[in-house]
Design a binder for these strands. Structure first.
Lengths: 337, 337
DNA sequence: CTGTTAGCGCCTTCAG
DNA sequence: CTGAAGGCGCTAACAG
């Protein structure tokens, strides 16, 4: 069972390699007899076309690339599940391009990375997960005509699947408002990305609509990580000592976990002293009974694949945008006031 | 910036393609002048060799495959980090073969899967993570000479990197014993894998060494998932009502989480009523303050890559076994009695 | 030292 | 409907 090639098949089936190739790509017309004969030999020899050779001839690799940064593990894992799910029916391989945190912020290396992916031509298209691609980078993909779809990110000039974070934040805050909370704090992630901006806007919008005055002391900007949640919560506890909020909305579950830690350290508890609501619905949150806004992560992945495959197969450069809506998952970290 | 090939650079540099190839693989001797000239053109054209073509000529793909089952996500994520880390210096790509739960148990499909990987020849070697490969499957790899290394699994006939689970379980139980616990329950995973067997053995060994009699009512066999932990804990609570254990050791953190749930539901708490210790040290356990046995997950990944690359590059079929030892991570789920 | 040529395994015209 | 031949982009002898 060494390396059986198309020639072996042709020889044993007593036909030319052209014929074998034809049945392989069930293209053109081949007589039923010969087709069956060839098929038989293929099975007998356990023949499978060599991916490289086929790729070279076809100028198609039969695989897509997925570009991620290595520090979004929870989120990524879920998206990946969707991607795999979506990929199943296409029988394509998946190559993983992980740009590590360091490379990501080092412009030079990030560019090199993309250049390499593009020129090596090992993949027929790429899915960029939460990648904040620049216009210039997007153009690189366009100029070499390898389809790119942005997942969990939105850029005008490129196909994207993303979520309506304004709506998500509003859902969270409205839920709190319905529980009679009026003093609601918001621990946000960074503001140099869509997510941060939208969630802040959703937060404010919900408050406005409920005619609750916005207290800027209750709005904190940080990062989407645990440490940030912890620190900002401590700040809030400190700074608003004489007029504490009754509820806290964090822009990520991980921040909520940090906040929870700060809350406990200060001798308070959730949901008795504070109602706490997160964002993302990572697996952790389930185990912590954290009420949160669920991002449709695996759906994003699956949809991303769908869009990418369509783009790969149609070869026309239509830009498609798909916006998904997050939804509230009620657990046990919020209480009526 | 379309598809620049080796011919383009040869032409522009006014040399033959052979020369370009030589500087690319900085092989043989090329005069400094021509080498520099070529290098210059390469940079100018932003040329990068086509991976497929090179692969076809070299009979090497420049990438490795990683075979995983999709239901070990936490664990996998950590191993993957190590793999990426290890892969960095080799500048190889990583293709992900996820055999989903369904396929995995459907023998036919699993075999087809491996056949496909092997005969497509898209990768130079594969890392199988927690895969319980059969002798027959391993032989398939051998017969086509694509290097395989088993990660978190041990088979006599193949290179493997794995952990000493006997020792790990002993560490856990010894810790409990040092806390004066005598009635220690063990919630194990399934017994049809090395992990389950070894952990049970470690559990028993530690007890024996401490001259504590083994109570078979306190040993439960199930699966490595949350539900199993929950159910088995309930059984224990039920069956040993009049003589409850004081400590519980679970064979995975996920089971510990399930057990925790059952404990809480029954009105007990950890670590006051029961000491609880898990296994794995998945990220979750940190947030739940669960004392556990840390598996060197990313080390396994990194070491696996190292071994695989050595095997790929040396082309000699040496079988190497590397056993790593897990270590105790003390948090807050156990108390002295 | 360097240009030329023959594959690597497959697909796709082009004749027949 | 089918065999033969050229080419995909690159590497590795082989002659200069």
């Amino acid at each position: 069972m060494g390396n059986v090639t198309i020639y072996d098949v042709a020889e044993l089936a007593e036909v030319g390699i052209g014929t074998v190739s034809r049945v392989l790509n069930n293209s053109a017309r081949v007589s039923k007899e010969t087709r069956n004969k060839v098929l038989e030999v293929i099975k007998k020899l356990n023949y499978q076309p060599n991916a490289m050779a086929r790729g070279l001839a076809l100028q198609k690799t039969g695989s897509i690339g997925i570009l991620i940064s290595n520090f979004t593990s929870h989120f990524f894992m879920e998206v990946l599940k969707g991607v795999q799910q979506g990929l199943k029916k296409y029988n394509m391989d998946l190559v993983l391009y992980t740009v590590s945190a360091g490379d990501f912020y080092d412009i030079t290396r990030k560019e090199n990375y993309i250049d390499r992916i593009l020129s090596e031509r090992r993949v027929d298209g790429v899915l960029a997960i939460t990648m904040k691609m620049t216009e210039e980078e997007i153009n690189k993909f366009k100029s070499v005509k390898v389809p790119l779809v942005l997942v969990n990110d939105l850029q005008e000039s490129n196909s994207s699947v993303f979520v309506d974070d304004i709506e998500g934040a509003k859902e969270a805050v409205n839920y709190l408002i319905n529980l009679n909370h009026k003093r609601i704090a918001f621990i946000n992630g960074c503001m140099d990305c869509r997510q941060g901006n939208q969630r802040l806007r959703g937060f404010k919008d919900a408050l406005k609509e409920a005619n609750i005055e916005i207290d800027n002391n209750l709005i904190k900007i940080g990062d989407f990580n645990e440490e940030s949640g912890y620190n900002l919560m401590k700040e809030i506890l400190e700074e608003t000592k004489e007029n504490l909020p009754t509820a806290i909305f964090t822009a990520s579950d991980i921040q909520a976990i940090g906040a929870l830690k700060a809350i406990k350290e200060a001798g308070y508890s959730v949901p008795d002293d504070f109602s706490l609501i997160g964002y993302d619905n990572i697996e952790l949150s389930k185990h912590l009974d954290l009420t949160t806004i669920a991002q449709p992560m695996s759906e994003m992945g699956e949809l991303g694949v769908e869009m990418l495959m369509k783009s790969i197969n149609s070869q026309q450069n239509e830009i498609i945008k798909r916006e998904l809506v997050p939804n509230l998952v009620v657990r046990d970290s919020c209480s009526k006031i």
